[in-house]
């Protein structure tokens, strides 16, 4: 049986005056229902564009999208705009980073919820309102009945994100994409929101894609992780595997740059030097090469001349790197310290 969501060789390119922006280049992954995939990367790595391409939120007049995105057999890349619109909100839904700017300031939260119900369900307004109240209740809005006519500006940040989640899930979609769902929230609220998303996921057996640059979030919620750099996947595997034994120097750099409480405080954090590449003129060879401290170790200057392929190094663990696998594990051990036993979250 084919997976619930199957993305194959997805490419998104935006023609601009300065040249073609290769925002997403050859991204492939599968996702089953009840499973969670985390997409990790810096700004401009293509993670948000990937998710928006899946949702059909990229204007096809201003971008060229190729590859395949099969959602239960329907190819979202070749589907008509109307076809995708019918799926959007019903079959797949999305929550965004900043809940204040993502909710319409002029409409009450109830109205925004009811609107979401009425697009996809043939029910009366009052029935839709009942559903909306019920959903607000489920996402943990206290006295939902009284608050349904509130406007977004009358709610706290955490409450707003709960409303966003309610809007996304009100039609019980089977795919939920959360684009940095906790980035704009207080730390104390972040954990609650993640908990809520996880609970609702298991309740609705939703397939979940979490886009984040917060590696803590990944460890918290995800089964699999997909690390993106310069519009491509550079490492993919289960969270346990990737956190325990990251093999791509970029992933390693990301993990090494996370402040840790279980270690003696080092003098400094260990950031990745340099800047993310321009998506218009990517470097020749390995895209990460200009920032990679180990490129010199590879013979024949392969990192300068040849794009590395995404190769399986162990079971379901794919890495895009010219370094030999043994050397990569060695580096990981060196940089992250003793990695014996479990994930490094």
């Amino acid at each position: 049986m084919s997976p619930y969501l199957e993305v194959t060789d997805l490419k998104v390119e935006f023609p601009t005056e300065d040249g073609i922006v290769h925002a997403v280049d050859g991204v492939s992954f599968d996702l089953e229902r009840s499973q969670t995939l985390a997409i990790v990367g810096e700004s401009g790595s293509g993670k948000s564009v990937t998710s928006q391409a899946i949702m059909g939120l990229i204007n096809r007049k201003s971008a060229s999208i190729s590859g395949q995105v099969l959602l239960e057999g329907t190819d979202l890349v070749t589907e008509t705009d109307d076809g995708i619109r019918a799926l959007r909100g019903r079959e797949m839904a999305m929550i965004f980073q900043d809940p204040l700017s993502s909710l319409h300031p002029f409409y009450s939260i109830g109205r925004q919820l009811v609107e979401a119900v009425l697009v996809h369900q043939d029910v009366s307004k009052s029935a839709a309102r009942e559903q909306a109240i019920d959903m607000l209740d489920r996402v943990g809005i206290p006295s939902a009945k009284a608050r349904i006519d509130d406007y977004p500006h009358q709610l706290s940040g955490g409450m707003r994100q709960r409303v966003m989640i309610a809007i996304a899930l009100v039609n019980s979609p089977s795919l939920l994409i959360a684009d940095e769902p906790t980035t704009a929230l207080d730390v104390t609220v972040q954990a609650q929101i993640l908990e809520l998303i996880k609970d609702l996921q298991s309740e609705f057996s939703t397939a979940l894609i979490v886009i984040t640059h917060d590696l803590g979030v990944v460890a918290e919620v995800a089964d699999d992780v997909l690390v993106m750099y310069g519009g491509r996947i550079v490492e993919r595997g289960s969270v346990d595997e990737v956190y325990r034994a990251p093999e791509m120097p970029y992933t390693l750099g990301l993990l090494a740059s996370v402040p840790r409480m279980d270690r003696p405080r080092a003098a400094r954090l260990d950031p990745i030097p340099g800047q993310p590449p321009s998506l218009i003129s990517l470097p020749q060879g390995c895209v990460f090469r200009p920032r990679c401290p180990y490129a010199d170790e590879v013979p024949d200057r392969a990192c300068w001349t040849t794009r590395p392929a995404l190769v399986e190094t162990r079971d379901d663990h794919l890495v895009r790197c010219h370094l030999p696998s043994e050397r990569r594990i060695e580096l990981a051990t060196e940089r992250l310290g003793a990695l014996t036993g479990g994930g490094a979250s």
Partner: peptide, 21 residues
């Protein structure tokens, strides 16, 4: 604006997105 993206992600018709939102 972000809320226009939200409106689209709900599956609203383009007309509703443009005029109502």
């Amino acid at each position: 604006e972000d809320y226009i993206r939200t409106a689209r992600s709900k599956g609203l018709s383009e007309r509703t997105v443009i005029y109502k939102h």
